[in-house]
Amino acid sequence: MHVYACVKRVPMTGGRITLTDDQRAISTRHLGFTVSPHEECAVEEAVQIVEREGGSVTVLTLGPSESEEQLRDMMAIGADRALHLLTDGEEWDPQATAAAIVTAIRADAQPPDLILFGNESADAGNYQVAVRVAHALGLPCVTGVKAITIAGGRARCEQEVPGGRDVYDAPLPSVVAVKEGINLPRYPSVPGRLRAKRKPLEASSPERPAARLEMTRLELPPDSGKQVKILGRGPEAAPAVVEVLAELGVL
């Protein structure tokens, strides 16, 4: 099996988001970067499938040159090679992102049997790149997936829905968008990191088409205006807490 996993570099936001002066990005002066959580699980799932079924994992990203850090991280947890679609740091809209991924996958000498995405990116959350890639490649697509079982050339996918999980029996190749919780991604080992440095990484620079969903400005939502009432310190606060619970009618 040749499994693709598509990832995006995003800042680790922590407790409070601050914006750049031009309000077009999050100020990342004091922040580290990571892969969106759902996508990290997509890579882990790809690695586990290939560990069971044999084959190889290609990790793909569209992003600035710094995204190589995330590609190396994903190769450190088991991806075999990386494709880097380089941008100049400007944001690409979902249609442009999907088109660039489609072009890269079509150019691959070894077509994938399974293309994994995260259900939505942590930052933009557009909920559509996987679906667009599937339609462009003429493949079926399942989203919101919390379990994948490969058997007999098909992928049994469990989609999380209120009150349970819907099972989709997808033929291969297919596109599957997964959610965090499908697995617990492993931490990269030191030997894994060393191996990742020597794994193949191919970079290309696709042309950015005009955006049809064009971000112009970011803003913080209005402050909740909440003023916290401190009920006390340590165990002595317990009676005041219980009084609040009684007032709220949950006791």
């Binding site: 971000m215 803003e219 939502p221």
Partner: peptide, 9 residues
């Protein structure tokens, strides 16, 4: 946690 303004073409 954040809002975006975007042109929808």
């Amino acid at each position: 946690s954040l809002l975006e303004q975007a042109l929808l073409r």
